[in-house]
Design a protein around this nucleic acid. Structure first.
Lengths: 153, 153
DNA sequence: TTGATATCATTTGCATACGAATGAATTTGC
DNA sequence: GCAAATTCATTCGTATGCAAATGATATCAA
């Protein structure tokens, strides 16, 4: 085999390497698509609330009154994002805000009676949404998937 | 067992049902967190481009010139979103736009020489990003995860 | 106690993401 | 061949999502 052959093979290998990258096989790209699909399923069942808004209500229903910042940590939203979400829920009368009596930096958030009614009404729909999102998998596959997904998140 | 006992159990079961919903176990919530983590990993390796911008460049590198709309379909972005992404890539000189000679509705997009250089330089980093995203899983788990994720997306 | 740090909330700027409406151009169906 | 339907691109409005900067308050440490 000549030196020129070796060079050729090397060049071909590099070309192959470049062309071998397929976006549609990358975990990030598929993750983005799976998330898109879930959001669409969510919207088809719960049209008047977004997944982040639902997450805020569900968490407040679970743990009760907490600070805006703490809520953000629990539902994986940074401070700027959670503020917008809470502002919109407040505008719709689903949550109330209070200043913390002792620590004046904190803004306490809690469900209103209306917010409590809403989340109690929506939780069954949320179960349906979860089911429909996982519908392409068997029960066993879904369990495996959730276990591995949790390791990644 | 009295009728009152039955009623009590029923009420308790309903309460349990309501309180039994745990946001942090829902596939949508974990999917959102996994996606967030991936985007953060992406940004730590490729700071000057977002994942959607990278997707557009990678797909153009893969298939060559195409219409804005077709590109959007291939990278799972609606028309409004892809327009913004392409506009920003164009402003940075990474893609060029041409009117389609025959079908005057279409706007053709292609990489510039600079765009081609950029994507060739970035693909190795993208491989690293994929690896790091999947790092919490073993090779076997990663393969299983990708197979199931693809079924969901 | 006070000066340095840290925490909480807000604001601004930028970048997806998508529904809905619009207008231009093309294709289809009859 | 022409009206209806479709496709392509754009624009507007709304909602995340995050980095960075700012101001108020609280905690820590010397």
């Amino acid at each position: 085999m000549s030196g020129e052959d070796n060079l050729l093979r090397l060049v071909e290998a590099e070309e192959l390497d470049k062309n071998n990258y397929h976006l549609q096989d990358q975990v990030g790209f598929i993750l983005r698509k799976a998330h898109q699909r879930h959001v669409a399923i969510f919207a088809s069942h719960i049209g008047d609330l977004t997944p982040p808004q639902f997450a805020a209500l569900a968490k407040l229903y679970d743990i009760g009154e907490t600070s805006q910042n703490q809520l953000g940590t629990l539902i994986a939203m940074d401070a700027a994002t959670v503020k917008g979400v809470i502002d919109r829920l407040k505008a719709r009368g689903l949550v109330e805000l209070f200043k913390h009596e002792v620590d004046k930096r904190r803004l306490l958030v809690n469900l209103t009676a209306e917010g409590r009614d809403a989340i109690e009404r929506l939780i069954p729909l949320a179960r349906t949404i979860t089911e429909e999102t996982l519908a392409p998998l068997t029960a066993k596959e879904a369990a495996t998937f959730l276990r591995l997904l949790a390791k990644l998140a």
